[in-house]
Design a protein around this nucleic acid. Structure first.
Lengths: 241, 241
DNA sequence: ATTTCTAATATGTCCATACATATTCAATCT
DNA sequence: AGATTGAATATGTATGGACATATTAGAAAT
């Protein structure tokens, strides 16, 4: 198998990472200066810099000017989590997707929701409740509030063909989002909607979406715990293997 | 307030991100070529390259040679999750930390565990069960298996002063880890240990740790759902604000 | 019309150099 | 001793050039 030449910065990065992983370089240890590594690999300092900068971004080393680079103290691990669109997630499992809107009404926001939307309590907002099915089995219950001050068109939007999340993604694709993950017991209503038993554990994703400091929407996405498992992916891989 | 001059690559990155966020650049739209942007900002192409490369790593744009750069189709969002050491997590909440080892024994691995450890079913491994307390309230129940083929010292390690996770982190700080998140109902034993009711929802973190393709340990970290909420952090911020 | 080849092109990597800036360490002054 | 100052130094950003490589669009051949 002819292997394409690995970029030098990746080679340096991976070899450093290996040394960190196998314990040759331990937390607190100093990493050689960029210039010295550049000599060792016979490359430019910028190339070494990129390698070590990426390791720093991924949390493996810590850098300080003049002080140099040290292996970071281990323990806390940063991983990458991808929150997909429900439809994608379902179709990737080889199941067919459909959804139904159980409720769609303009309501006064209760305290907890108002806080999440950053509006005064009692401000009118669009409340939505949907179920998303994977091959006709309930997969996700979505309870959503949309800030009509930010997205007034939502009030008369039609969610027969397109689900609220995808509709919102169209209107402002890359708004800023904050996510929280937790576990809850299903209440009677949630249980019957998701076709599980009351008190069954649910995996909950909360999402708050902003644009320019103002909240667009707040959603709770509830999944039957028995089916649902979220996977975190690592940042970098030593290609050696 | 005298503000230090923003690096050019960040200025470019943030201004592009703003254009993507506010909808001026929509998914599928082409971003100007690096050389053109370099002219606009009167900087080198390498500077533009870094700005756009970071946007690509964070999932905002997609790049192809010759084809150019396009705003990525929105929807799936990548976020960063940090899994801290229990002790840190508890102390950061201003609570005092202590833990107790409920069980520590060498056992034959059952099927499910053997799969996670990548060993033959029935291989001996160290089984550990610990509770971690936040100001004397049970915070996390840890059920762990350690592969003694990889870490034989663990068999006679003393977990009175240092908890198993921190002990393992010392022995191989930056092994590779895979994480999974899910929700489970507490069984009777878990419930009494965590001082919650049977069937209460638990937030579960599973962690599988490898080194050079071989599993070191597999752990389930169970948290009472009522207390626990995991927060995902975004990658980049437009500094404009 | 379809396939095959070829040239154009935008991104990907890299270099050699330069200067900026945070931080340390040592020398100097109180 | 303690505070202040200043030089040394490792990283951070940037330049302007070069070549590599994937991919596309168009030309040529079937």
């Amino acid at each position: 198998m002819t292997t394409r030449p690995e970029p030098v910065y990746l080679k340096i990065k991976n070899e450093l990472l290996d040394r960190i992983r196998n314990g040759e370089l331990r937390p607190g240890d100093k990493v050689e200066h960029e210039e010295i590594i550049a000599q060792q690999y016979d490359c430019a300092r910028a190339t070494v810099h990129r390698a070590i900068r990426e390791l720093a971004e991924e949390g493996y080393v810590e850098r300080k000017r003049r002080a140099g680079t040290r292996v970071a103290s281990a323990g806390t691990r940063a991983t990458r989590v991808t929150i997909p669109l429900v439809r994608q997630e379902i179709e990737e499992r080889g199941a067919s997707y459909r959804f139904t809107v159980l409720e769609q009404s303009v309501r006064e926001t209760p305290q907890a929701i108002a806080e999440n939307l950053g509006v005064e309590r009692g401000t009118k907002a669009l409340y939505l409740r949907c179920v998303h099915f994977a091959s006709d089995i309930p997969f996700q219950l979505e309870e959503r509030w949309i800030n009509l001050e930010m997205v007034p068109e939502a009030e008369h939007a039609n969610f027969d063909q397109i689900n609220p999340n995808e509709w919102l993604v169209q209107s402002s694709p890359y708004s800023e989002a904050a996510h929280f993950f937790s576990a809850q017991n299903a209440n009677a209503e949630q249980a019957s909607t998701l076709n599980v038993l009351e008190n069954d554990a649910l995996f909950v994703i909360e999402r708050r979406t902003h644009l320019g400091g103002k909240a667009i929407t707040y959603a709770q996405l509830l999944h039957p715990g028995a089916n649902y498992r979220m996977t975190a992916k690592n940042f970098s891989f030593s290609t050696k293997n």
